[in-house]
Design a protein around this nucleic acid. Structure first.
Lengths: 118, 118
DNA sequence: TGCGAATATTCGAAAAAGCGAATATTCTTA
DNA sequence: TAAGAATATTCGCTTTTTCGAATATTCGCA
């Protein structure tokens, strides 16, 4: 059972372990949108987006609602948003550190940097 | 640039997207321990553990400190522990939902169920 | 110095993930 | 009912991941 839980956690991470899927989840942050809109926003192939959506669906990360011709996607669980928020802080902390290590930071507008991390 | 950030996020998720690596992070939650102890605790092959540790190292998720013959690993950021704890609750919620959907719940001792999920 | 313990790396094979092209399905509307 | 839009699925193919076996490295100690 301990194992089952770990496999579950890993499977959620796995579902998020692709830039396109990260982008999808971020696109859904502010509410549901149609697959078409997601596709346009991300600029990926239709089939490819559909495949990624299928993965997120299979992990129960997104819900889909059919309306006529279109399918609207949304995040299924607010807890996940909290997880993502927590990870966002993690990313900020580490990115700052790593970027600094690479010496690439050099007097950037802090407001813009923050925005980039959202 | 937005893309670069998404790739970074995905790479962190990816690093955590394996049950063994989740188990490693959990094993480190109370402080540093040696690779040997991790291996014993998880019951995996030595080479395999070392490979997983290399992945966590490369993503800067763990730090390692050499002391004589041994190497002690630790979490670079405790926030991950919170993330994992949150995911446990997330898991419980989903499991509860699914179990309920299957109608398999039927008066189980709540204390035992909670324990099983820890 | 040389042996043994702890850890890391390399290698080859098997499994899984990712992609675009083609095709299928489901609606809407003419 | 046929055309067309939106979405999903299937199919090969390539790339990546994962594993254990074998090997290398590093350190402490007899």
């Amino acid at each position: 059972m301990q194992n089952l839980l770990r496999e579950y956690k890993a499977s959620i991470f796995h579902a998020l372990a692709h830039p396109t899927r990260v982008a999808i989840v971020e696109a859904l942050r502010d509410g549901e949108i149609s697959a078409r809109v997601i596709q346009e926003r991300l600029g990926v192939e239709q089939a490819n987006l559909s495949q990624h959506l299928a993965i997120l669906r299979s992990r129960q990360i997104v819900a889909n609602r059919k309306e006529g011709n279109q399918v609207f996607y949304s995040l299924r669980n607010k807890a996940l948003v909290k997880v993502l928020d927590m990870m966002r802080r993690y990313f900020q902390a580490h990115l700052a550190e790593e970027v600094q290590m690479l010496g690439e930071i050099e007097a950037e507008d802090p407001a813009r940097r923050k925005e980039r991390l959202d």
